[in-house]
Nucleic acid binder design. Structure first.
Lengths: 227, 227
DNA sequence: CGGCGGCTTGATCGGTCTCAAGTACGGTGG
DNA sequence: CCACCGTACTTGAGACCGATCAAGCCGCCG
């Protein structure tokens, strides 16, 4: 049905841990920064994959990550893009129901879930931190859902506003991800995404200095079509 | 664009609490059953609404609940149906970003979030319980997303399988919700849902003894089209 | 019996997918 | 420096699926 990229399996976390050890950094305060182990991943590298045991939680220190599912027919659905500061890896149960890949080169803080929950059992503040993290994740996914039932223009406009709100840089948005990634995130095809961006440019709602940089020229108009 | 029901605002929780006090029940073990206050809601009654302060968490004791968002153009997106045993009200932040309504008459256990988190801060077991609840909610919402990017037949088939898995009763599924609810859950129109059910019946994948009861006659076929 | 709400069915329209070229960009080697 | 290549992106023409508009049908209740 929809043309999507096919991904080969990745190596295990333990292998990778040995391959990419990074000097500890403890600049920030939360539990993640205290007990998290920084690891580096190259563009398109697999961070964890579907069926992996759920052992860790991850926080993006720098770069961008995508979490995806592959449907039986090969289509790929991207559930979320995770930017610096975001936490991911929330799958419940024994195995991951989705997989995570580096969209760009990135540094990820990795912590064992058991370490976090043990810490939380002793320290109420950590428990509250975990609680807030999980609630924020629920809110993110819930906010993404309405995006999937709108028209192509509404989806793309909403996506650009969402990205602009999460990035510094005012009206200029840098896209870390490809058109294919955007399409799989919005439930559209790459062609429709491209066409829609062109249309938005012609309506003077945005400017496209190049394919990975977008300037929001008319936010009210974008918000309007975001419905 | 899409025809949807329009909902009027509901009364506040405190009003309702005074209106529908129900005798305490403490049959089950978790924190919810220990400190939760049972309340009754009539069909289509509002449990909380968008913009309400986020103060409580809810657990379905009996009946079915829907949590929805209303888009700016009036369309309604149902994020989830909550059956007996499910917990809802996970919105993060000061205000609810969605609203919850009773699909059928139902009994809901209500607890103050602050009471839960205080309990969790003192009791690691409760903290772990909260953590599991939140993770389960994340998983549910993540599983719903792929459903919104498929064809109508795939969505309806997936919906029926999901409902059958969550209900007792084997191959016979009782639909607590209207066609409009299903449509708003799947991001389709009521006409498409109806047509698709008819088509599935003609393919002998299901039987429709009446409009609110569905018998799964060929699960493999349904799973197949669920992709 | 008549009316009403929920559901089904039909005919047409439009938006998005699909298939297929064409173009811009970055890298590599001559 | 330029010719070449591969990848990512854009653009075009046509088919298809689901939305829309519009009737009919059914069960329920007064």
């Amino acid at each position: 049905m929809m043309h999507t990229t096919v991904h080969d399996g990745g190596s295990t976390l333990s292998e990778r841990s040995a391959r990419h050890p990074v000097a500890m950094r403890r600049t920030s305060t939360g539990a993640f920064e205290t007990i998290g182990v920084p690891m580096e991943f190259a563009r398109n590298e697999e961070i964890y994959c579907e069926g992996d045991p759920v052992e860790y939680l991850y926080k993006v220190a720098s770069g961008t990550v995508r979490t995806c599912k592959v449907l039986a027919d090969g289509r790929r659905q991207i559930g979320a893009f995770h930017l610096a500061g975001d936490i991911f890896g929330f799958d419940v149960g024994a195995e991951h129901g989705s997989f995570a890949e580096a969209v760009t080169n990135c540094t990820i803080l990795v912590v064992k879930r058991s370490a976090l929950t043990e810490l939380a059992a002793r320290d109420g503040a950590v428990a509250r931190e975990l609680w807030v993290m999980a609630n924020r994740e629920v809110a993110r996914v819930q906010d993404h859902m309405p995006l999937l039932v709108k028209s192509a223009q509404e989806r793309v406009a909403g996506f650009l506003l969402e990205l602009a709100a999460r990035q510094p840089g005012g009206d200029t948005v840098e896209l870390p991800m490809s058109r294919q990634d955007i399409a799989d995130y919005l439930g559209l095809t790459i062609e429709t995404v491209s066409r829609t961006l062109t249309a938005l440019e012609q309506e003077a709602a945005i400017a496209l200095p190049n394919s990975r940089r977008i300037v929001l020229r008319n936010r009210p108009a974008l918000r309007e079509m975001n419905a």
